[in-house]
Amino acid sequence: MLAIYKRELYSYFTSPIGYLFVAILWAASGLAFSFFTFLAGQDANISSYFTSELIILMFVTPILTMKSFSEDRKLKTEQLILTSPVSLPGFVVAKFLSSYTLLGGTFIIVNCINLPIMFSYLSDQPLVVYNAVTALGSCVAVLLVGAAFISVGLLISSLTENQIISALGTLIILAALLGASMLNSKIGFAPLRAVLRWLSIYSRFSAFTQGYFDFASLIYYASFAAVCLFVTVRVYEKRRWA
């Protein structure tokens, strides 16, 4: 498992994909950050910043996951991995962890730079302590949503050997997951609205940016990721037993 994890991380940086991912995430976060602090003046707030981080992640996650399983399938290297003494869950988890290391690592580094600047800028505001705690809570939430996003990407990637389909499919599903709550008010049928709100990644997330640390949502994100990874394992099992 460790071998696959190391090789995956290594392969991100022997192809443009890893650099592309880090560059786009970093640049877009920087833009969003400037936009919601320096350029916002009196209206500077961390809620909009973290919401935009979520939308940025929606766009960059497919870059990270598009080749995960697709490429192994195309190169037939999955035959090597699946005939080696590594278990199927180990294989899937190793892929997940390598993508997650890159996503989480970049996010943490970017915010280690962004957030101190933000607080020094906001230090004359009365709510600075409240803001600091909210920011930390939001960071935790973004990291968990990132895990959920990656696991969706891995699941889609395991279904196709075409990287473009894998990336587009992931993007569409992530957009649908985020968009579900935005369309919510347009739906007349109340029970459906309730289910969608419960499922929606976005409406759960906005609570964090308002300073409300919701453990139930954290568990929701983690189980969302776990279910996707489990289904990915099943996809491979299914193919073996077909």
């Binding site: 290594y10 022997t14 190169l75 037939k76 290297t77 035959q79 090597l80 005939t83």
Partner: peptide, 14 residues
Amino acid sequence: IGYLPDQPPLYPEM
């Protein structure tokens, strides 16, 4: 077991 499938399972970037 050591196995060479019909298409060698190689990673071109290594």
